[in-house]
Amino acid sequence: MPESKSRIHIIKRLGGWVVKKEGAERATRRFSTREEAISSAIEYRSKGHDLVIHRRDGTVEKWLKRDQ
């Protein structure tokens, strides 16, 4: 699997925050707050995915590497 396809993104969308796999056309899950979205997505790290947490403006605030 190419490295970029293994990234999971936390993205602001339509008044809430979504969890989305890179390259996917649709979000996996939707939450009211960013904190909820991060808590939900943190499990992906143990499955070999990097977690990319975005700011409201789309830029990257934090990059959590996958668990080794």
Binding site: H9, I11, E22, A24, E25, A27, V52, H54, G58, V60
Partner: peptide
């Protein structure tokens, strides 16, 4: 919008 976020990750 989603691709803009992906783009920012690529840039970073």
């Amino acid at each position: 919008w989603y691709d803009f976020n992906d783009f920012n990750a690529g840039l970073y």
